[in-house]
Design a binder for these strands. Structure first.
Lengths: 201, 201
DNA sequence: TAAAAAATACCGACCGTTGGGTATGTAAAT
DNA sequence: ATTTACATACCCAACGGTCGGTATTTTTTA
């Protein structure tokens, strides 16, 4: 009856590693960077400690790998979006919404904040993640540029606007922790949108 | 020779509590929120565990008290500054610099970030600190208003600008963790300053 | 091609350390 | 004499990490 699903070693490895990555990321979201322990990850992943030690040399190796995993997925998401969009009828607010909805709320926001703040007190993490975080920002910047060049906006001005926009979003992401008011932040983004419209016109 | 400095109980209590507060804040800066342990605090403070348990019922009580301590000092700093300034010849950039230099770099930035992010995964901390954090923001807002009203700017527009400014600063504070480029952020603040000047004129 | 050997994937008990918190006793002020 | 302030030794749970052993897949070989 029950089909024995034989898997080769590569599949087995990949599957348990993905399980460990997702469990680690869930734990980062639920308990924070320092609150994340191996036992909690093992429990979430439904995987034994032996499996972990077989694939990773230490806890921090797993956390770094899981972080790279989610950041690279974010970069892909952005790149796919850039490729799929039809620049001609794209609205400025759509870009803002894409960035906000994908990276500055929910799971991605939570994990992104945890990792960034953890970098301050964890030199190893910082060394490993800084390049990927930079890469992530570049991919967003690229998405923005594909818009502004299509519209023929001033390059330097629009780049500053992009950077300031991201910083505003980051700031709102932090504030939304202690002040979780969805509508308020939507209004704030609208106000920012109005200002940018004026500046670009 | 050596004068025995007799102290009353109130003085003794106050002194060790301040010692514990400062050590806790130093530890928050050095090791982060979750990386802060009682043993590290005791070591930094040069105080025994018995002294801690005499004054505080738990670790989190000490951390909350120390957080209230630094946030209240920040509120005072702002209020003192508002009282001392001569609105008539105050420059817009001075306000930005005051806010940035006092709260979004160095020790205050580090501790402020740690506490805000910790609030997400620590319900008790969040409940205790949210009102004080809100109070802190109000005190900054008040400083801003005392400027804009003196200059006769539009109330609603200038309030939005203030909020966006703070959010930008917050975002820059996070980014400066993984990208510690002092000059870059100064330029960015200058760009923002230019934009605000246009908007307020 | 089937059995044997080797390599890979995984399990769970164990170890030393550090965590927050407590309990008992001493020093100092009132 | 009594309350307040502080010190130290101790407790147990959780931590990251290790280790000897088992299950599964892959390679070798007869």
């Amino acid at each position: 009856m029950t089909k024995i699903d034989r898997k080769n070693q590569a599949q087995r490895s990949a599957e348990t590693q993905i399980k460990l990555f997702e469990a680690t990321l869930d734990s980062l979201q639920e308990f924070g960077y320092r609150g994340t322990s191996l036992s909690k990850i093992m429990l979430k992943a439904g995987v034994s400690k032996g499996a972990w030690s077989h694939h990773f040399t230490s806890k921090s190796e797993l956390v770094v790998a899981a972080s790279e995993y989610i950041l690279n997925k974010a970069i892909e998401t952005t790149q796919d979006w850039v490729l799929s969009l039809n620049s001609s009828n794209l609205k400025l607010f759509d870009i803002f919404d894409f960035i906000w909805n994908n990276f500055y709320i929910g799971r991605h926001r939570d994990i992104w904040l945890e990792l960034n703040i953890a970098c301050r007190t964890d030199g190893n993490l910082k060394d490993r993640l800084s390049p990927i975080i930079a890469h992530f920002h570049k991919s967003i910047n690229k998405a923005w540029k594909s818009y502004t060049t299509a519209k023929g906006y001033n390059d330097k001005v629009s780049e500053h606007i992009m950077i300031l926009t991201i910083n505003c979003f980051r700031g709102m992401a932090i504030q939304s922790i202690t002040q979780n008011d969805h509508e308020y932040f939507k209004e704030l983004r609208m106000e920012w949108f109005k200002i940018v419209s004026i500046l670009l016109s």
